[in-house]
């Protein structure tokens, strides 16, 4: 195990990240799906920073030549996974927002012009 000042700083950041995630879970401010992703991220960052030799065990599986490539590859995969999750969630939220805004507009319109509010076919 080779501990350098930089690896200590990264490990400290990762542990702080773990603390924030667990805190948010306790306060029920983070969904289980997101919590799992972030816990895995911070935990793996802490473990691989303090025990970089563990990466050598993963290298043969990925057919990558060295740890740096593995780090970059892993970070990119994670980044895309997080981005995909965010985009999907944003899409769903925008859809809900549009539906609500439209529904409000229709209800207000019917009230303003004295139309029957029961006739809601769409």
């Amino acid at each position: 195990m080779l501990i350098t000042p930089l690896s200590l700083v990264i490990a400290a950041i990762a542990l702080a990240g773990l603390y924030f995630v667990t805190n948010r879970i306790k306060k029920d401010r983070l969904g289980i799906g997101s919590a799992m992703i972030w816990l895995a991220l911070w935990a793996s960052m802490a473990i691989f920073t303090l025990f970089p030799a563990l990466l050598d065990m993963v290298l043969p599986i990925t057919h990558l030549n060295n740890r740096v490539f593995l780090g970059i590859f892993g970070a990119l995969v994670l980044l895309f996974a997080v981005q995909f999750g965010q985009t999907t969630r944003m899409d769903a939220l925008l859809r809900d927002q549009a539906r609500l805004v439209r529904e409000m507009a229709l209800v207000n319109y019917r009230q303003r012009y004295g139309l029957d509010n029961k006739d809601r076919r769409i």
Binding site: R102, Y109, R110, R121
Partner: peptide, 23 residues
Amino acid sequence: VARHHSNLGQGHAILTGFMLALL
């Protein structure tokens, strides 16, 4: 006139317009 309380974009507004016309 009907009002969208936030800007959804032209397509959304036309869709609401359809619904108003059908009333």
